[in-house]
C-alpha cells in the first residue's frame, strides 16, 4: 500500500504549480474484455467513463458530481508476431451536447526485459462531429510494468504500472498537444484478470493561449480476458 501513497504524493507535487490554470478532478472507471476468435485474431471491448467531482471553472469551489463522458470501444486485433499486434477499433462516445463516433488504428509492440515489460503503443484516431470538421489525433504511449514480488509476475502478486502518452491533435488547421501520465498499483489475479488502481494526470491545451488545463483522474481499471 505504501506505493499508493508514493504515487499520490508524486501527483500532488505536480499539481502545486500553476494555480490559475483550469483544474478538474474526478473518477475514471474502465473495464476491458478480450477474447480470441482464432489463433491470430482477437476482439476487445472496452468501456470507460469519466465522472467529474471538482472543476475550478465553477464559481464556488464545491464538490459537485458531473457525468463527463462514457466511451464504448470495440477493437479487432491481429497478432503479427508474439511481440507485435495491430488493431482497428471504433468508439462511440456518450457526452453532453453531442455523441461522437471515432475510428482508431493502432500498433502495439511488446518489449520484454529481464523482469519488467514495456508496451509501446502507436495510435491514430479520427473523431467525427455533426457540424465541425473531423478531429485527427496521433498518439504514442509507453507503459512499463514491474512486478513487486520477485522477478516474475505470478498469479496473486502485484505490480506497478507507469505510463506516459503524448497526443498531437489537429482539427481544421488548429492543433494542440495533450500529455497523460499515469501511475497505478496492479493486482495480477491471474493472466485473465488484472486490476489497476491509480492516478491519471492529464494536461492539455498546450498550444492554446491562456487555456492550460489539468485533469486528475482517480482510475480504476479491470482487464478481463476469456
Amino acid at each position: 500500500m505504501k506505493y499508493i501513497y508514493l504515487i499520490a504524493i508524486l501527483f500532488l507535487c505536480l499539481n502545486l504549480k500553476a494555480q490559475n490554470d483550469r483544474f478538474i478532478f474526478g473518477f475514471f472507471p474502465e473495464a476491458s474484455l478480450k477474447y480470441n476468435i482464432s489463433e491470430k485474431y482477437s476482439i476487445t471491448h472496452k468501456v470507460e467513463s469519466q465522472h467529474g467531482l471538482f472543476d475550478s471553472n465553477r464559481l464556488n469551489d464545491e464538490l459537485q458530481y458531473e457525468h463527463s463522458l462514457t466511451d464504448l470501444q470495440s477493437f479487432i486485433g491481429r497478432r503479427l508476431t508474439p511481440f507485435l499486434k495491430a488493431d482497428i477499433g471504433y468508439q462511440y462516445r456518450v457526452e453532453e451536447g453531442e455523441n461522437t463516433h471515432r475510428t482508431i488504428q493502432q500498433v502495439s509492440i511488446l518489449q520484454r526485459g529481464s523482469f519488467y515489460r514495456i508496451g509501446h503503443r502507436v495510435r491514430i484516431d479520427q473523431t467525427y462531429f455533426q457540424e465541425e470538421s473531423t478531429l485527427h489525433r496521433a498518439r504514442y504511449r509507453i507503459k512499463g510494468q514491474i512486478p513487486l514480488q520477485g522477478r516474475e509476475l505470478d498469479p496473486g502478486e502485484n505490480y506497478l504500472a507507469i505510463s506516459n502518452e503524448l497526443i498531437y491533435m489537429i482539427q481544421s488547421s488548429e492543433d494542440d498537444l495533450e500529455n497523460r501520465l499515469t501511475a497505478a498499483y496492479g493486482f495480477y489475479i491471474d493472466d485473465k484478470n488484472k486490476i489497476e488502481i491509480g492516478l491519471d494526470y492529464r494536461t492539455d491545451d498546450y498550444l492554446v493561449k491562456d487555456r492550460f488545463r489539468h485533469r486528475l483522474w482517480f482510475k480504476f481499471g479491470y482487464y478481463k480476458s476469456l
Binding site: S32, K34, T44, K46, Q73, F75, G77, P82, F83, K85, D87, Q106, S108, L110, R112, R117, I118, G119, R121, K143, Q145, L153, A161, G186, D191, K192, K194, E196, G221, Y223, S225
Partner: peptide, 10 residues
C-alpha cells in the same frame, strides 16, 4: 507463453 498484453495495448 507470453502473458496477456491487454493492459499494455488498450
Amino acid at each position: 507463453k507470453i502473458k496477456n498484453t491487454d493492459n499494455l495495448d488498450y
